[in-house]
């Protein structure tokens, strides 16, 4: 059986909030290392890869592989009943029909308990090859969101160019064009403000802003975001959480002229 206790419900609330507009029905695949999810959006352009490591829970118990088939709209309805600071416990049997969720207020004066009906989801998993990306950019997640939102107002697509001079986000729309160039920032006192660019070769790729703006809903999970880019392969946008857990988004590029 699965028993997983989170000190603060907000971790799961934020994760589900960040992905529910991209994927609807998906399996939480549980085993002794944690809870994983891999799901593509309907258009097969974007992929969500979530890993909530056992270390992010206290305690975490899951002695065999359990697939928890969830509708994220339904899960959201239940999670809305949890306060951010509540202690959240997930429980499920080995071949579960339902997921049991309890929310305890931190001063223990209220315990809410819900059972959510599960679905049988036959999910198609993709093998994601290990890639040595040509460019890895680490930046404040709020900055990335601002860039994507600002450019979305002008165009459907953004071209991300990483070179030795920095990283440039450029768009071309009906009303005109615009670009934002970022250079390395080293803020010793506030490391989360850093912009780090690791580059092995220059890259230039175009992506749909609609999906990038959607990924930015994960902003609350982490103060920094990492973009991994190589020519002609999907972009990886990564939000890291405590305990080695992460939320990753992959986005297929736009190609050709």
């Amino acid at each position: 059986m699965l028993e997983a206790r989170l000190e603060q419900a907000q971790l799961l609330k934020k994760v589900v909030d960040a992905i529910k507009d991209l994927v609807q029905d998906c399996n939480f695949d549980c085993n002794d290392s944690g809870i994983a999810l891999q799901a593509m959006d309907n258009s097969h352009v974007a992929l969500v890869s979530m890993m909530l490591k056992a270390e992010s829970f206290n305690p975490f118990r899951c002695d065999r592989n359990i697939a928890i088939g969830l509708n994220l709209v339904s899960l959201t309805k239940v999670l809305r009943a949890a306060q951010n600071e509540d202690i959240l416990t997930l429980k499920a049997e080995d071949a579960p029909d339902s997921l049991n969720l309890t929310f305890e207020s931190s001063d223990k004066d209220r315990i809410s308990e819900y059972d959510l009906k599960l679905m049988d989801i036959d999910q198609e998993h993709l093998g994601i090859p290990d890639t040595d990306y040509s460019a890895t950019i680490s930046m404040p997640s709020a900055e990335f969101k601002r860039i994507c939102t600002d450019l979305m107002a002008m165009s459907e697509s953004v071209t991300i160019e990483a070179g030795k001079d920095g990283i440039k986000f450029a768009c071309n729309g009906d009303i005109g064009n615009g670009s934002i160039t970022l250079r390395t920032v080293q803020d010793v006192e506030n490391k989360e403000n850093n912009i780090e660019i690791a580059l092995t070769e220059p890259v230039s790729l175009t992506f749909s802003l609609k999906y990038l703006v959607n990924f930015c809903k994960a902003q609350n999970l982490s103060k920094t975001v990492k973009l991994h880019i190589s020519n002609e392969v999907p972009l990886l946008v990564e939000y890291a959480m405590e305990g080695g857990s992460y939320l990753r988004f992959y986005l297929a590029p736009k190609i050709g002229d």
């Binding site: 258009s43 097969h44 352009v45 974007a46 093998g127 297929a252 736009k254 050709g256 002229d257």
Partner: peptide, 14 residues
Amino acid sequence: KSSQTTLGKFFGKP
């Protein structure tokens, strides 16, 4: 004009 690719082009079935 560039066209949108899908992930199946890059990521295989495991």
